[in-house]
Design a protein around this nucleic acid. Sequence first.
DNA 1: CTGGACTTC
DNA 2: GAAGTCCAG
Length: 269
Amino acid sequence: MKRKQVYTLLVILCAVGFYLFETYYQPPAVKEAQEEGEVPKETTNSFFLPSSTTGQVIHHNYFSLSYSEPHEQAEWVAYELKKKHLSNNNFKRPYFEVDQAVRTKAAHWRNYKNSGYDRGHLCPAGDRSFSREAFEETFITSNISPQMHDFNSGIWNRLEQKVRYWAQRYDGVYVVTGGILEDRLHSIGEEEVSIPKYFYKVLLDNSGGRTKMIAFLLPHAASDRPLYEFVVSVDSIEKRTGIDFFPQLEDGKEARLEAKSDYKEWSFQ
DNA sequence: CTGGACTTC
DNA sequence: GAAGTCCAG
């Protein structure tokens, strides 16, 4: 074999090795947790996890997420919100930590400092306040997105409270939420954390032997409009994000539910 | 509830 | 960096 061929072979082997590593390697802590069947622990039924367009799904104890390295935030965060999760605990808010489970290195919270944008939770702290451990787990940088304060404390907060109301009423909704991650978004910080122009929330209620869905697409801006004006079909969000939200449902049922954009089965009080 | 910023050690 | 205090939507 000539020297040139040897080099070519080495390069190919390295490329294949890197590909395999990128595809299958997981940090030991995460891998062990999965093998022990703790994933996701009690709260998120993996049966209803969305697909990932980034190939980096991470299961934390109380929610799961799919991290987008180019946008330095999650493309979705998913969890189940049960009636028993609702509580009025008033834990002290801890400091944010970089999510060590993100192998491509999650964004640092300093990107948000003095940026003018909130560290907006995707899985709200208020949805995980049934224990201090769960509450504090939401304070990781893979669970936040830059949000304008008037949006975060306004209509987005109203939507999160509505989800808690539905969790109370229907006992158990699956929640998937994130920003619409597109090309050429503006960003903040040295690591260039993308600022989404829209945020979405997709809900599935599987209680009472029936399955129903609802989805919201909110422009990233303050609004006093009623929430039902932002209801869209799950299909339309799948089209914009490339995410398949409920691939585990039987195909016919999935197609029927995801095409709907009415909200008559969801009480807006 | 959703958050930030400032002072002090 | 951590803790306390004060602030706004």
